[in-house]
């Protein structure tokens, strides 16, 4: 019973904040509402006894990604007026598509096909059961190759980021320490022999 009440409260907050993300005018508010959305989604996961995922969501998304996002939103002053052009024109078509899709999804994904009679809730777990340990066990045995491939995907992201943003500027004055050390006296000082001028005065 308590669980059910919690579920409905959390879900309401989740849906309301998700709606807020796409409807509020101020983009900083939208980012903060997204934090709330992530937070409530993490609560839902913990209700489903997936506590590691819940905590990871908060640590990674709320803690790292969203903070970065907030910085970006604050630093780049995005002109939202320009982005909102044509909003009214596309609204009817968009609403129609959204309504049709929502109706279809509700018809299929409702309690008839995904009710609790078909899918039982999470089983009671024995004391001392650790979700984190189970996940780690899977990731580093059965799915080890998948983890490695995920690392490759990240490598591609790094290479792409470097290829797209690194610019070698010419004419930049920087120190080349190796060249400085390797310099010889003969490179810098030139000894010139000149007739002394004193003798001229004498004669």
């Amino acid at each position: 019973m308590v669980e059910q009440i919690l579920f409905y409260v959390i879900s309401t907050v989740l849906l309301a904040s998700a709606l807020g993300v796409i409807s509020v005018k101020n983009s900083v508010h939208a980012a903060l509402l997204l934090v709330l959305t992530f937070f409530t989604a993490a609560q839902l996961w913990i209700l489903l006894r997936a506590e590691f995922l819940g905590i990871a969501l908060i640590l990674v998304y709320v803690g790292a990604v969203m903070v970065l996002f907030l910085f970006v939103v604050m630093m780049l002053d995005v002109n939202t007026e320009h982005l909102k052009q044509g909003f009214a024109r596309y609204l009817p078509a968009g609403l129609l598509v959204a309504a049709v899709m929502a109706a279809q999804m509700i018809a299929v994904l409702g309690a008839r096909n995904f009710g609790t009679d078909k899918f039982a809730g999470p089983a009671e777990l024995p004391a001392g059961y650790s979700n984190t340990e189970e996940l780690a066990q899977l990731l580093f045995t059965e799915y080890l190759i998948a983890v490695e491939v995920a690392a490759l995907v990240l490598t591609v992201a790094v290479i792409a980021a470097v290829a797209l943003t690194l610019r070698k500027r010419t004419g930049v004055r920087t120190q080349d320490i190796a060249a400085q050390i390797a310099v010889k006296r003969s490179d810098r000082v030139r000894l010139v022999k000149m007739p002394s001028e004193g003798s001229k005065v004498d004669s």
Binding site: V149, V156, I159, L164
Partner: peptide
């Protein structure tokens, strides 16, 4: 396996986006 399939797809797609933007 769906996970491997998806990872392969993303590896291909991500490289593709970068190639277009090169």
């Amino acid at each position: 396996n769906f996970i491997m399939l998806y990872l392969g797809l993303e590896l291909l797609a991500l490289s593709g986006y970068a190639l277009v933007a090169l």
